[in-house]
Design a protein around this nucleic acid. Structure first.
Length: 287
DNA sequence: CTGGGGACGGGGCCC
DNA sequence: CGGGCCCCGTCCCCA
């Protein structure tokens, strides 16, 4: 599992300096803090068809140049900047400046999603660039009969109204919605999942003792136990206690005669899959 | 080198 | 829909 969002990134120091984190997030303490979802947090990446894994299969060659994807796709670029809106107004977040997060939550949220809906896509385009001009279903010179192609399912319709009706009522792909994270490339089918994921970027839960930031309250609670020394998870087989349930679970493996993870070659068992992996990487003598 | 503990992460599930 | 919790997992450190 990638740990790119881990706060702890200084491998050489056991006690990382969280001063920088504190300055950015201390005004958004967990528990009272509401997720600071801004426009830019939940606005979709403006993917051209070729950017979507699903759409990629059906992507048609729109153009040989990068202009085939006229919409901005960089997560660092305000998706609305090209619409004439103030880029700053839509891209600021607690991570990017030191404004109290609470002030950001007052922003009237406009949740959009990546969808195949023609009207929504069109609304994201500059008024000067009609959608059909960007994605002609009939390449110039290839046919005399003009048609309108659904970009999502490749079905061709004879009229614009037919295309609109198709997308509204019949196109299976057009009803699929995607919520994209502006900080990374991840996509989610629900807004709730995306909001939770965004917390791994914004890290709204801040330890008041050391300033370290976490994505979720219970992670902070677990961290606070490292300060207080509280160990609520006790082993039933010995006197040991743990601050973390996962660590108790791992500890319970040490009491087990047969460990959970077994080498298929020598049948030696290990309490952790990482130990089994090490055993196999080092070269099992019987393998 | 191995095994175990500590700290922490993300996704999913339930309420 | 959001919060809390659980599960599974990783990485680091140390004996």
């Amino acid at each position: 599992m990638p740990r790119s969002f881990l706060v702890k990134k200084q491998h050489s120091t056991k006690k990382p300096n969280y001063g920088g984190l504190k300055s950015e997030t201390e005004e958004a303490p967990c528990g009272t803090h509401e997720d600071s979802l801004l426009y830019s947090d939940v606005l979709p990446h403006h993917r051209c068809p070729a950017q979507s894994p699903r759409l990629q299969q059906r992507a048609q060659p729109l153009s040989s140049s990068s202009s085939s994807c006229p919409l901005p796709s960089s997560p660092n670029t305000s998706p609305l900047s090209f619409l004439g809106h103030s880029s700053e107004a839509y891209s600021r977040s607690p991570v990017e400046d030191n404004k109290p997060a609470e002030s950001c939550t007052k922003v009237n949220l406009e949740i959009q999603c990546v969808t195949g809906d023609l009207r929504q896509r069109e609304s994201l385009l500059p008024p000067s660039l009609p959608l059909l001009a960007l994605f002609p279903a009939t390449p110039p010179g290839s046919s005399s009969q003009e048609s309108f192609e659904c970009l999502d399912c490749r079905k061709e319709l004879l009229s614009f109204s037919g295309l609109a009706k198709h997308k509204q009522l019949r196109c299976e792909w057009s009803s699929k919605k995607y919520f994209s994270c502006k900080y990374c490339e991840k996509e989610y089918v629900s807004l709730g999942a995306l909001k939770m994921h965004i917390r791994t970027h914004t890290l709204p839960c801040v330890c008041k003792l050391c300033g370290k930031a976490f994505s979720r309250p219970w992670l902070l609670q677990g961290h606070i136990r490292t300060h207080t020394g509280e160990k609520p998870f006790s082993c039933l087989h010995c006197s040991r206690a743990f601050a973390d349930r996962s660590n108790l679970r791992a500890h319970l493996q040490t009491h087990s005669e047969v460990k959970k993870y077994q080498c298929a070659s020598c049948f030696k068992t290990f309490s952790r899959i990482s130990l089994l992996a090490k055993h196999q990487e080092a070269g099992c003598p019987l393998s």
